[in-house]
Every structure is written in structure tokens, then in C-alpha cells.
């Protein structure tokens, strides 16, 4: 192929060239903006869809949960433990000293109403679901929850006490919309 050495044949005067270059620049910029606008929906479509977002919050009627009982509900694809704590359990949670705790946290910071403990039921070690919610399940050495996968023990505030888990069971965002109904998420 004829190898030109990059010399530009001067087709128009200097002013004409600048005008042409500006036009090409403007067109290019316009096209680039258009390209970005086109790309956006294809990225956004991977974000959660409307039906997924609709299940981002869940309202739970807790009127049937007796003192000392606990239930499991599904929220954003993971289990949430809701325990109606006894006075003994609340006192035990408050009695713990910061030195005893692997991940120090006050019980009052973890429960808006002391008798209702609401936790995301996923072990902070490697993601198994700890036992201790349903009737008959072992609660571990600290009377809270016990994860059978690698032996993490959680106390009556859901805090990690013994075992490989590094952090306390997470507390999800929640609000009491009435005495009987809590909205999670």
C-alpha cells in the first residue's frame, strides 16, 4: 500500500480546517454521549428488578410469638431470627462484660425493645444457619444460638462468644409499625 508519511495535503485554508475539526469533535462528543446513554440500560438491567425490590422489606406479625419463643422469617433471601426474650435472657445479655466478648457490643445497641431480639440468622464465619430458634434445637453454651458447621456459640444477644466466627450476628434494619407488627428492611 502506498505508505504516506503522515503529511497532510492542505485541502482548505487554516480556518476551514479548524471549522472542520471542531465539527468532527462536536460530532464525536455527541456520539460518545449517545454511546454512554445506550450503555446505561444494559448495566442497570443487572440491578435488582422491581419485584425483587418489592420484597426488600417484609412485615411480620409477631403477636403469636410467646415469651421464650422464637420464629424464623425469610427476608431478602436469608433467614431472620425473631426471639421474644425472657427476663432471664435479657439480664444475661446485659451481664456480659466487654472482656468476655469477641466482638464487643452493648445489648441495648442490638435491640430497640429489649424483649424483642431480631437478628440475621447467618453465621458470620462461613454462612451456615445457626441452630437455636425452633423448639428443641440446641442453643449452645451461652443459651443463644449454636452453629453446627464449625462450632460457633452465640449468646442471648446473638453475640459471638466462642468459636471461629469473627462478628456478632448482624442486626437488620427494622421498625415497629405497631406493637404487633415489625417491618424488617
Amino acid at each position: 500500500m502506498a505508505d504516506t508519511d503522515g503529511a497532510q495535503a492542505p485541502e482548505h485554508g487554516h480556518e476551514g480546517e479548524t471549522r472542520r475539526d471542531f465539527l468532527q469533535l462536536a460530532t464525536g462528543a455527541f456520539a460518545a454521549v449517545g454511546g454512554a446513554a445506550v450503555a446505561w440500560p444494559f448495566i442497570q438491567q443487572m440491578n435488582p428488578a422491581a419485584d425483587t425490590l418489592a420484597l426488600a422489606t417484609v412485615e411480620v406479625d409477631i403477636s403469636a410469638v410467646e415469651v421464650g419463643q422464637a420464629i424464623k422469617v425469610k427476608w431478602r433471601g436469608v433467614p431472620v431470627f425473631i426471639r421474644h426474650r425472657t427476663k432471664a435472657e435479657i439480664d444475661a445479655a446485659n451481664a456480659a462484660k466487654p472482656g468476655d466478648l469477641i466482638d464487643p457490643e452493648e445489648d441495648s445497641a442490638r435491640a430497640k425493645k429489649p424483649e424483642w431480639l431480631i437478628l440475621v440468622g447467618v453465621c458470620t464465619h462461613l454462612g451456615c444457619i445457626p441452630l437455636g430458634t425452633s423448639q428443641g434445637e440446641t442453643k449452645g453454651e451461652f443459651n443463644g444460638w449454636f452453629c453446627p458447621c464449625h462450632g460457633s456459640h452465640y449468646d442471648t444477644s446473638g453475640r459471638i462468644r466462642k468459636g471461629p466466627a469473627p462478628k456478632n450476628l448482624p442486626v437488620p434494619e427494622y421498625t415497629f409499625i405497631s406493637d404487633n407488627v415489625v417491618k424488617i428492611g
Binding site: P41, F42, N47, D51, T52
Partner: peptide, 10 residues
Amino acid sequence: MRDVNYGWLI
């Protein structure tokens, strides 16, 4: 068409 973001467009 209804729930996926821009699904109707794609």
C-alpha cells in the same frame, strides 16, 4: 417487560 430495569426496552 414489567419488573426488570429497562427490560421492556431491551
